[in-house]
Nucleic acid binder design. Sequence first.
DNA 1: GTCTATAATCCGATAGAC
DNA 2: GTCTATCGGATTATAGAC
Lengths: 182, 182
Amino acid sequence: MPPPPAARAKVLHAYAEILVASGERAATLEAVAEQAGVSKGGLLYHFPSKEALAEGLVEHLRELTAADVAAMRGAPEGAVDYLLRTSTVVDGEFELVYLAVSRLSQGLHPQAAAVIDEAQEAWTDAVRDDVGDPVLARAVALMSEGLYALATTGSRSLDPTELDDLLALVHDVAAARRGADA
Amino acid sequence: MPPPPAARAKVLHAYAEILVASGERAATLEAVAEQAGVSKGGLLYHFPSKEALAEGLVEHLRELTAADVAAMRGAPEGAVDYLLRTSTVVDGEFELVYLAVSRLSQGLHPQAAAVIDEAQEAWTDAVRDDVGDPVLARAVALMSEGLYALATTGSRSLDPTELDDLLALVHDVAAARRGADA
DNA sequence: GTCTATAATCCGATAGAC
DNA sequence: GTCTATCGGATTATAGAC
């Protein structure tokens, strides 16, 4: 397939940025177009309606998620560290788009909620394979969501030290649970 | 002080319901007025502007939070169980308003973000006093946020069984950490 | 205190030039 | 493929009757 026009990607990126920084209500076509450096008409050429724009972002997340899950499973530091660290920093295109779509999922966008669900399930599976305990895996996935929420609220994120303490705790528990296996 | 008019409370409740069920964008004055059973003009008598409505909800959460923190610290089952159970079920006025304001906090409402922050800090403190470990307390607070996010996305909430497993895990870890004290 | 009617603005979408 | 100009509907807010 021919390389997709750069404007399309710029629009999706701007849309995600505004959704995360200022919320659903601020993400008007005009605001997105301006931040992307195109006109409203130009935006609407690539995405014929606002719903199409939302679907485009959801689809973009679907593509990025596959790569992220693969990276997580291949991460040398293990799935737990990978997941909790990426949930804390929120730089990177994937985290931005994930947060943006999770905001869409709070509105009337069933597909957005479905993709978020799929991503969380994939992460929980990867963590389970890493720590070997379904309950601990669930706990880690919940903490990941909590970290995303924290990064979002605008309040300061977790100190690097606190994150390290948290990771140490998880690894301790994982080791203890492995030792207690029947 | 004289009892505040019932219409005011009905409007705030309707506003919170729409915010949680359908998102920021769906929470128009007209939609809120209809769900509250008043007219747009009637609503605007109590809250002269949309911003005033948002501030009213934020203030309402501030009041409810004080009571919730007290209940949490006095809960016979302990702060951990209280927090994680109420984060899972989301019935009750407090949980509704908390979720509604946490959505407002994603928009351009600094005060909303501040109240959410304060609540989380109060919860973390109460859990720390319960389990006696700051890192575990942080972990529990993050799981609480994750559970709220889960309840929000529309995806199914946690099974009661899974919640019980999670609580058992936390209590195991708390006991182990207490035993390992220097 | 609550309503109806309406003004003013904003937003999504279309039309058509380039 | 991108732009400007503009229409129609939605949304916030005001004015004034009851």
